[in-house]
């Protein structure tokens, strides 16, 4: 992550713009006073959070990621629906057919942000919850055997890799 002063400044401005949109949604009016207040507040928030958090908007968020986000969201939504159908079947079953286990999974995704997105997608989809993440090793709790197999097929990982434009051998 080599970032020059200029790119940090640009990312601050982008963050301020995003926060300004957030402000418009929150206040839900377009009165001039409100817009001025919103501009001041979002600029202030962007600089303060950059100072406190020590970083502004992850550099791995590029225009391509934002464009691919809706497709990813739809696919993830479908996976979540399938996950719920699966968990629902298990919970409603009077015999409670579960066989919990903790499995390790190595991911090739680079950087913190793709790993986070991947781990959260795992948590939201079929019978798996990310428990711990150490560098590129994820400890995942699976509810039943077929969930573990589903995880090791790597479908979700491909989806996240598609979102961030990562190649496997890269």
């Amino acid at each position: 992550m080599h970032t020059s002063e200029g790119s940090i400044f640009y990312r601050k401005i982008i963050l301020a713009a995003v926060l300004f949109l957030f402000w418009i949604v929150l206040t839900s009016t377009l009165v001039p006073v409100n817009i001025v207040l919103g501009a001041i507040c979002s600029a202030f928030t962007a600089s303060v959070s950059a100072a406190i958090l020590g970083r502004v908007l992850d550099p791995q968020i590029t225009l391509g990621v934002i464009l691919r986000l809706p497709i990813f969201a739809v696919r993830l939504g479908w996976e979540i629906v399938k996950a719920n159908y699966d968990v629902a079947k298990i919970i409603i079953n009077p015999k409670l057919p579960i066989d919990p286990r903790i499995t390790e999974y190595r991911t090739y995704l680079p950087g913190d942000l793709p790993k986070t997105v991947f781990a959260n997608s795992i948590t939201l989809t079929p019978g798996t919850v990310t428990l711990k993440i150490e560098d590129d090793k994820l400890y995942v709790h699976c509810l039943a055997a077929h969930h573990e197999e589903g995880l090791h097929e790597g479908k979700l990982e491909r989806m996240v890799a598609y979102l961030f434009g990562v190649r496997k051998d890269a």
């Binding site: 963050l15 926060l19 957030f22 928030t45 962007a46 959070s49 406190i52 958090l53 970083r55 992850d58 913190d112 942000l113 790993k115 986070t116 781990a119 959260n120 990310t130 711990k132 993440i133």
Partner: peptide, 14 residues
């Protein structure tokens, strides 16, 4: 945790 840290970095400005 990396996940919690990234989530907070995203949510803190909001």
């Amino acid at each position: 945790s990396v996940i919690v840290r990234i989530a907070i970095i995203f949510l803190a400005p909001l």
